[in-house]
Design a protein around this nucleic acid. Structure first.
Lengths: 199, 199
DNA sequence: CGGAAATTTTAATGGGCATTAAAATACGGC
DNA sequence: GCCGTATTTTAATGCCCATTAAAATTTCCG
């Protein structure tokens, strides 16, 4: 039984299949909710038996946790990249939208919607909530920066951030992986979301 | 055992408690998902036993169905009211945002997020999906009208509509009924969402 | 107060699902 | 072709939950 450490060892197979598992789980969770998907559902997508999943991961709780962790990473990474490139607040926001949306529609996906946080184990829940809050605060900081530099209209950054996060978070609910829709999303979302911010 | 018909009969009590039940269920569903909430969870909110729920409704399936039906009605009604008042496409859209958001935050709520459609019985699912699709198409028609009359910028109405619906649909996920937050939502969302549409 | 209708509870029943252990199979190096 | 390890399956186990029927309680009208 290989551990997580030897991802780069002789067998990339284990790590690969584990990643496949996480993606299959995210897809199921988005369609039917965490509680609504049985491990048998996830297993079927991989051509496996439900019990086989335990070879790759500790249990269902660990599965959601890692899915949510991945989702949080995707968002945090997009915002971080957008920030380091610099520019006005509006430019950073627009770039963040593009990066996050592209990640949601790209190979990293499907990314799990964090829709059943109360179902997490307490320790996991607090971790995920902390990451989620941090991401919101950091995005609000971008908005405030834009207001200060005059690129973004004066607004309630908390509420405007919530609106934007809703639009983005909802994507995995209706986007199911076809490439042409992905293009439409990437072509429309960032522009629309940023237009509502412009001063 | 009163039927649904005598809502206005001697006992408004039955209808009232039934409405309470639907609201409690919507709250639970939004927090923990449909599959994640047991009837005991819903019952506890009302100070009842799980079995008592069956006095008011046929079962869990019927409960979600009616919650989703209510959610669909809220949205359809908001759009209909916004439409009949007339004006440019942009004005109608803005009015619709205000009405829908106010309904989500007001006494009609909590309104259930339609997040576990696959869990519905086939007949219920098709009904809800049809309503959902119709609502989307009607909103896209408003956008097209705005593009035609010049009030709304040229855009992919399908994608822009998806972005907007996401922002609105996500509200019940983080809004939990306090009045001051409701005011902030109603003051921020319609303006932000409409600003992204303006030509 | 008394009794019928309304409301709620207690007490089954059965099914689905996460989880586990042991057995079976696939697979790569020698 | 053979052996040990990796992978998967089969076969339990036990819990939680939706649902139901019957009993108990409340409500309210005469």
């Amino acid at each position: 039984m290989p551990t997580l450490d030897n991802v780069s060892s002789a067998t990339a197979a284990f790590g690969d299949k584990r990643a496949q598992l996480l993606r299959a789980a995210a897809r199921c969770f988005n369609e039917k909710g965490y509680s609504g998907t049985s491990l048998k559902d996830v297993a079927r997508l991989l051509g496996l038996t439900d019990a086989a999943i335990y070879y790759y991961i500790d249990g269902k709780q660990q599965l959601v946790y890692e899915c949510y962790l991945h989702a949080a990473d995707i968002g945090a990474h997009a915002l971080e990249c957008a920030n380091t490139a610099g520019g006005t607040g509006l430019e950073i926001a627009h770039r963040y939208f593009s990066l996050h949306v592209a990640a949601l529609c790209g190979d990293a996906g499907p990314v799990a919607i964090m829709s059943e946080i109360p179902a997490l184990l307490p320790a996991h829940r607090e971790d995920i909530l902390a990451r989620s809050r941090r991401h919101s605060r950091q995005f609000e900081a971008v908005l405030r920066r834009g207001i200060d530099d005059g690129s973004i209209i004066e607004c309630d950054v908390r509420m405007t951030g919530n609106a934007i996060m809703g639009a983005i978070n909802w994507i995995p609910k209706w986007f199911h992986g076809d490439a042409t829709t992905a293009q439409h999303i990437e072509a429309s979302f960032p522009d629309y979301l940023a237009r509502g911010l412009a001063s």
